[in-house]
């Protein structure tokens, strides 16, 4: 599903955020990406989303060299990836329902289909009863669940998450990770960047460890 081939990323010619990253993730796999802040986790995810382009090497997603995508193809590429952000990136001027509906509205689905799929996604994250609420009325954990619902409402083949449990207490973090495992179970490829080592150790999945822009460990689940 994802293949990094000797990928390097420099910013501003000097600072090397990633160097010689080489790994593969199979379809349907669930992978954690760990490392200290500044180790390059976010840069790596941004490369997959094609928000950045590699300075060296190739990033392949679903068999395509995504560096070769034409700018006009980018929106359609991004629609196949669900992304969960640490700060959830919800829009505060509209209800939970409309936040989750956004990817489907962009794809131009009929309102009836949108309603059905939004409710299924909200039901999945346990927030169906809050669909009319505004994001500001929700707790941090609930906002994160809305972010997850929005990421999966499109039924993406690939789900990326950047520190999805960053600001949450351990119980809520475990709940959120449980959701990701559910998606992994139904065949979605999941990649989660997190520095919550204790939680990751408990979940027993493959873990890629980054340090100062290098891939220092690739540990299969014990």
């Amino acid at each position: 599903m994802i293949a990094f081939e000797h990928v390097g990323k420099r910013y501003g010619g000097r600072f090397e955020a990633l160097s010689n990253i080489d790994f593969r993730v199979s379809r349907g796999e669930m992978v954690f990406l760990t490392g200290h802040s500044g180790a390059g986790k976010s840069s790596l995810l941004r490369l997959i989303m094609r928000l950045e382009r590699p300075s060296r090497g190739r990033v392949m997603v679903a068999g395509h060299d995504i560096d070769k995508l034409h700018p006009s193809q980018l929106p359609f590429y991004r629609r196949q990836i669900g992304v969960v952000f640490q700060d959830h990136q919800l829009l505060f001027d509209r209800s939970i329902y409309h936040n989750v509906a956004l990817p489907l509205e962009i794809r131009g689905l009929a309102p009836r289909d949108i309603a059905r799929r939004v409710r299924a996604a909200l039901d999945k994250v346990g927030l169906l009863h809050r669909e009319k609420a505004l994001p500001i009325e929700l707790s941090g954990g609930e906002q994160q669940r809305v972010g997850i619902a929005r990421a999966v409402v499109n039924k993406p083949a690939l789900l990326l998450a950047d520190e999805p449990t960053g600001n949450l207490d351990p119980q809520l973090s475990a709940d959120i990770m449980g959701l990701f495992e559910d998606f992994h179970r139904i065949g979605t490829t999941v990649m989660i960047a997190s520095h919550d080592l204790a939680l990751i150790a408990r979940l027993r999945h493959r873990t890629l460890r980054l340090s100062e822009g290098r891939l220092v460990a690739d540990e299969e689940a014990a």
Partner: peptide, 23 residues
């Protein structure tokens, strides 16, 4: 939280079912 925790698995299976049919 425990109430939400209980709701999650039920929802999960429902979403998985609709997803499969759509594909």
């Amino acid at each position: 939280h425990s109430r939400k925790g209980a709701a999650t698995p039920r929802g999960a299976s429902a979403a998985a079912r609709t997803g499969g049919r759509q594909e």
